[in-house]
């Protein structure tokens, strides 16, 4: 199998999440697909290029479809935004490791998302909803720039209704005239409401690296250990299979050894904001 040649996927439907994020539901045309929460795919718009995008749907649905939630920031993502249902894209993968769903069995989970990082966390949240008995207490913290920038709003009620859990939302600012009954401020401000027990929990974080930097600082001071804090990292990627070199953080490949690392694994590596 040639790992550089994409499989062909058809766009089944598109949901506008925020002014600059859309969720695409894709059906892989040539047979099966399976993945674990936290893995990503390389999505091609042929003629434009390829981007690494986390899978935002649940593995149980993979035989029927996968979803990707994309923020429009440049060439490839901009081209994706011009596509319509029925159009085709290339998909390679899934690549990378995934959230520690097995290690998390019986433990409390603290899930911290920022911006479009919530896409990578959604499969984990859906797993909690579908297999509630596997996990202990589950607290979800999610921050975005403004209320309009929150993804998956149509699911927040369900996330919030998880027994023995909570969903806490925050935004950086509320534009005039917008109704908002949750918190205002950076996502780490929500830490004061966290009740999971640091001694018996795992933390899963995905968001801008500067946000993860402050989150890690806060968590360490709350008594969480570096090897309990899982971070999904973002680096430039050209191959996804550990060959092109671009995604290196010191001695680690984000595409192959990650994209999810514990803070312990990364703390001594160079060239990061963490």
């Amino acid at each position: 199998m040639n790992p550089y040649v994409p499989r062909i996927a058809v766009i089944e439907s598109i949901v506008d999440e925020t002014p600059d994020i859309k969720t695409f539901r894709l059906r892989i045309t040539d047979g099966g697909f399976s993945f674990v929460p936290g893995q990503f795919v390389m999505v091609s718009v042929l003629g434009v290029g390829e981007s690494a995008i986390s899978i935002s749907s649940h593995p149980d649905d993979a035989e029927k479809f996968i979803e990707i939630s994309v923020r429009k920031v440049g060439n490839v993502t901009g081209s994706l935004f011009r596509l319509k249902p029925g159009d085709k894209v290339g998909v390679r993968g899934p690549f990378g490791n995934g959230w520690p769903v097995d290690k998390a069995v019986g433990k409390d989970l603290l899930i911290v998302g920022g911006g479009c990082g919530q896409g990578a966390l959604r499969p984990l949240i859906l797993d909690v909803l579908r297999h509630r008995d596997r996990y202990g207490r589950v607290e979800i913290l999610y921050g975005a720039r403004t209320p309009q920038d929150l993804m998956f709003k149509y699911e927040h009620d369900v996330w919030a209704s998880v027994p023995q859990g909570c969903l806490l939302l925050t935004v950086d600012r509320v534009p005039p005239g917008v109704e908002w009954k949750h918190n205002v401020g950076v996502v780490t401000r929500l830490f004061e409401h966290v009740t999971v027990d640091p001694a018996n929990s795992l933390v899963c974080i995905c968001g801008p690296e500067i946000m993860m930097h402050f989150a890690v600082k806060g968590l360490l001071s709350m008594g969480f250990k570096g090897d309990q804090i899982y971070l999904s990292m973002e680096r430039r990627m050209k191959c996804g299979v550990g060959k092109c070199g671009h995604c290196q953080i010191g001695g680690k490949y984000v595409c192959k050894d990650g994209p999810i690392f514990t803070y312990e694994e990364l703390k001594l590596e160079p060239d990061k904001i963490l």
């Binding site: 550089y4 042929l46 003629g47 434009v48 290029g49 390829e50 050209k238 191959c239 060959k243 092109c244 070199g245 671009h246």
Partner: peptide
Amino acid sequence: CYCFDVYDVLELNLRSGVRVRELD
């Protein structure tokens, strides 16, 4: 040193092209 970049080159007809890798 093995690192490479990957990019697409479209033909002038905009209907076909090639994906290329180049040492980086």
